[in-house]
Amino acid sequence: MKAVRSTTPGGPETLIVEELPRPEPQAGEVLIRVAGAGLNRADSLQRRGRYNLPPGASDIFGMEVSGTIAEVGPGVSSFAPGDQVMALLASGGYAEYVAVHAGHVLPVPEGTDLLEAAGIPEVAATVISNVWGTGRFAPGETVLIHGATGGIGVFGIQLIKALGGRVAVTASTSEKLEAARDLGADVLINYVEEDFAARMIAEGGADIILDTVGGPYLGRNVDALAPFGRIVTIGMQGGTEGNLNFAALMKKKASVSGTLLRDRSPEQKTQIMAEVARLVVPLLEAGDIRTVTERVYPLSDVAAAHAYFDTKGHVGKIVLDCRHTD
């Protein structure tokens, strides 16, 4: 099968499509003939040599896919060959085939395009596990999302609104903020032109902040919280270190958490995907939330896909079509 690995840490040009053995599904696994693979920030970090793979994970890129069940391993009764599915992976998605734990696989929601479904699993699992799980979201609360128009932002805005929340977002341009408004965001903050913390204080504060920036935002994130607010850090795009005023944190009765999805145990991922099935899939099938795919590239153009992803100019997901490898 054709699959993508990297020859050496660096830019998009280091990504190579090569011929590798097709995986075989083990007990409890299914083999998926991949239709689409979603791009994620962790893929870019992995390419640069700045992301350690979980123990035992393949060095083939890709954390989420959609496709068709090709085979089922021993002990799997929940899927059959021919089923259209989407799956959350530790790695291995930029390929024609991938073997994955059956508990991390869900049927493609009715009415969702098979290729576009590739952009659902990682963002849905991230928002559910961090906003609903770690963040303990309740309807009526305000969630601030840093990064309005990336995959997590675009999906998170819609999901939080659909489940009864109020959404504030930050972005660097008016065009990105308008896209966020169209998706349902209530509070739009251009972080280049205004202090997001001051704006959030004026808006009553955030109950939850979903933070992809990390260190440089720590102090202002605390300032932006409502009493009993929760900061959930899922990325470090701005750096790994920041200053924390414990007096301010204690006065807010607030908390700061940091989480990763990729290296969670198979059991934890199974629980998260069950929550995605319960909370997210019905909203997709009802049309209350939708996939937003900006560009689709053939697998053979993976370097171009990464180059565009790195510009941070996209709104929504970038997907590789793994059915086109030449």
Rank of each mutant, 00 (worst) to 15 (best):
A3D: 06
V4R: 01
T7H: 02
P12D: 01
E13D: 15
I16V: 15
E19A: 14
P23S: 08
P23G: 09
A27E: 11
A42L: 15
S44G: 00
S44A: 07
R47W: 04
G49V: 11
R50G: 02
N52T: 15
P55K: 12
I60E: 02
F61C: 03
S66K: 04
T68V: 15
T68N: 02
E71W: 12
G73L: 13
V76R: 01
V76C: 05
S78F: 05
V85T: 03
L89R: 08
A90W: 10
G93N: 06
Y94M: 07
A95Q: 05
E96T: 13
E96K: 08
V98I: 07
P109L: 12
T112G: 06
T112E: 08
A117K: 03
G119S: 15
E122N: 12
T126D: 00
V127H: 02
S129K: 05
G133D: 08
G133H: 11
T134D: 00
T134Q: 12
G135W: 02
I145N: 03
H146N: 10
T149W: 05
T149I: 13
G150V: 13
G151F: 03
I152T: 04
F155L: 15
Q158S: 10
A168R: 05
T170R: 00
S172I: 06
A180Q: 11
R181E: 08
L183T: 07
L183P: 10
L183K: 05
L183H: 13
L183F: 15
I189V: 10
E193P: 10
R199W: 07
R199L: 11
I201S: 10
E203C: 09
G204I: 09
G205L: 10
D207W: 00
I209K: 00
D211L: 02
V213S: 01
G214I: 01
G214R: 02
G214P: 03
G214L: 06
G215P: 01
G219R: 13
V222D: 03
D223I: 02
P227Q: 07
G239F: 12
T240V: 09
N243D: 10
L244T: 11
K251E: 01
K251A: 01
K252P: 13
K252C: 08
K252V: 10
S255P: 06
T259G: 06
T259L: 02
L260K: 12
R262K: 14
D263I: 07
R264K: 14
E267I: 12
Q268D: 12
I272D: 02
E275A: 08
V276C: 03
R278C: 00
V280M: 03
V281F: 05
V281M: 00
L284W: 01
E285F: 12
A286G: 14
G287R: 04
T293D: 05
V296E: 07
Y297H: 04
P298E: 09
S300R: 15
D301Q: 14
A303E: 14
A304Y: 08
A305K: 06
A305F: 11
A307Y: 09
Y308C: 09
F309D: 00
F309T: 09
G313T: 05
R323Y: 06
H324T: 08
T325E: 02
D326W: 14
